[in-house]
Nucleic acid binder design. Sequence first.
DNA 1: GGTTTGACCGGATGCTACCTCCGTTTTACG
DNA 2: CGTAAAACGGAGGTAGCATCCGGTCAAACC
Lengths: 198, 198
Amino acid sequence: MNASGQRGRKPRADVQRNRAALLETAQRHFLQHGVGTSLEAVAKEAGVGPGTLYRHFPTREALLAAVLQTRSEELVARQADIDQLGDPAEALEQWLRAMEDYFSAFSGLPDPLMAAARAQEPDNPLTLPCDTLITATDKYVQAAQLAGRVRESVKGYDLFLAAVSVAWIKGTGATDEESVDRLRALLASGYREPDDQA
Amino acid sequence: MNASGQRGRKPRADVQRNRAALLETAQRHFLQHGVGTSLEAVAKEAGVGPGTLYRHFPTREALLAAVLQTRSEELVARQADIDQLGDPAEALEQWLRAMEDYFSAFSGLPDPLMAAARAQEPDNPLTLPCDTLITATDKYVQAAQLAGRVRESVKGYDLFLAAVSVAWIKGTGATDEESVDRLRALLASGYREPDDQA
DNA sequence: GGTTTGACCGGATGCTACCTCCGTTTTACG
DNA sequence: CGTAAAACGGAGGTAGCATCCGGTCAAACC
């Protein structure tokens, strides 16, 4: 133990500096060019060699997961607001929108996300966030079902899939916002109880 | 005009041979490795140089469209059967399944398909099949709406998007058939008229 | 059947991106 | 300030894409 209470040697300053620069640059490139952006370009613009990038983030997914960390925290914050709502059907709906926004953060994000959702890949750094989201969705679904607002046949995972799909469609950029709205409405009338008048 | 009634010179035998070999090999590779498979590998296995492949099919999409031609014909055949059905709601449902199967022919197919669906790209060889499918879907939707079996708010394009989405999910391989079934059912109760007892 | 012609072939080529390895540099600590 | 551990970063091997061009081969004409 050293003075800062950490095990072993104090972490080097350049490590943190490079990591922060990489994350900042990567986020910008993911935003502009999607998740398939060139990692070499990210490294160069962050002012480090490719080796440094790969040491910090061994795979594209690892970098992606680290960049998504910020968005995850936003999502958790939004979750707190949603939990305040009295209406469980409204809460579910807002939660689905929140997830959809999260999935739409970068174009092409749904693909690695679905690859990670396929379980038995504990080494994939995106698996944990995915599982968390599925579990949370299930919570909202069950609450709404208890209130008789959502069909009993629906599972949280189904609506997780629905949200990812909508995000995927948005990410392809082939569709106007109107069509996406209609698709969301179609899904909503699919999971809601038929006699729900809300 | 020559003896065979064609303009100019008779097409060379090796052209047809190479084209057929490329199509056959490409289909096998698309099946095994998805639409992102290496075109160089396809050319090598077909016994031609990369130049020959690119002369026959200038882009990956062109090759894909040519390989899909066979499947398109199957789809048209299936359409004939569907048109025999008396029940327009049943016809729509079967048509959606037929489209979904078509989209699921190769893993990763939905992405280039959606890219082509984005209009104003008349040079994309996948645009034509896409537009045809959307138009056909609209036909089935309108027939079912006329019979009061499908909500008025639904558009053919919406269900086209739904079918592509389901195919995309299947293609990621991250989901078991049961979940896909539930998602399909969810979508169905979303577009059907609420009081439809069928 | 021989010659001509031009369409077609296919490999060599330049490019971009991925990912790894290892000699060099930086950093923390005593 | 000296030292050793840790991190850096660029060189380099691999793979795939897409193009170009000299050589070839099949079809057409005599």
